[in-house]
């Protein structure tokens, strides 16, 4: 059942993971809801919808943002990247391998946001200290691992074992 006929909608055009997209979206729809339910990019997760947990972390014009704290309409004309795009491009492959080998994920719900956040850190600081890694991921909530394995994995991917 479509809700579009019942909503105030608008048209947006942007790129998502490098592909041009045009869509009609409800103006009140959050960016992450649109990516997930409008485009089927379910790798970005919804954990709190009020900007605290970091599970919906994605990139807009190359910078991490909370997907629940932007409206879909706000990426009109911008470039969006999700974990699906980052995976396909291979740019987070070292982090993904390090997370896997170190068991730095359990349920996996926080993991896409965690990987994108860690990748942004490593792009600006290739060999961060453990304290710096903890600080950088401190906006991303993980209930399973206790964080240490994630810190280990980010350090390893940064070549800082």
């Amino acid at each position: 059942m479509s809700d579009l006929g019942l909503e105030t909608t608008a048209t947006l055009a942007c790129t998502v993971n490098g592909e041009p997209v045009r869509a009609i979206v409800p103006v009140r729809q959050s960016l992450v809801d649109w990516l997930r339910h409008g485009l089927g990019l379910t790798g970005s997760h919804v954990g709190c919808e009020h900007g605290v947990c970091g599970a919906c972390t994605i990139l807009v014009d190359g910078r991490t943002v909370r997907g629940c704290l932007m409206l879909a309409m706000q990426v009109d004309g911008l470039a969006v990247e999700t974990i699906e795009g980052a995976t396909a491009s291979g740019r987070v492959v070292a982090l993904q391998a390090a997370f896997r080998e170190r068991a730095a994920l359990q349920c996996g719900f926080c993991t896409p946001g965690m990987v994108l956040t860690a990748a942004e850190l490593l792009a600006s600081e290739p060999r961060p200290s453990r304290a710096r890694i903890r600080e950088a991921i401190s906006g991303n909530y993980c209930r399973c691992t206790g964080y240490q394995a994630i810190v280990d994995a980010v350090a390893a991917a940064g070549g800082n074992d």
């Binding site: 009140r28 629940c68 706000q74």
Partner: peptide, 26 residues
């Protein structure tokens, strides 16, 4: 007014505020 939205968006989501018009200045 919607600027960065990092406080307004949660307030909207929680329906703590329900403006009729959202003026996005971005």
């Amino acid at each position: 007014v919607l600027a960065g939205g990092q406080s307004l968006m949660p307030m909207l989501a929680l329906r703590l505020t329900a403006p009729a018009i959202l003026v996005d200045i971005n």
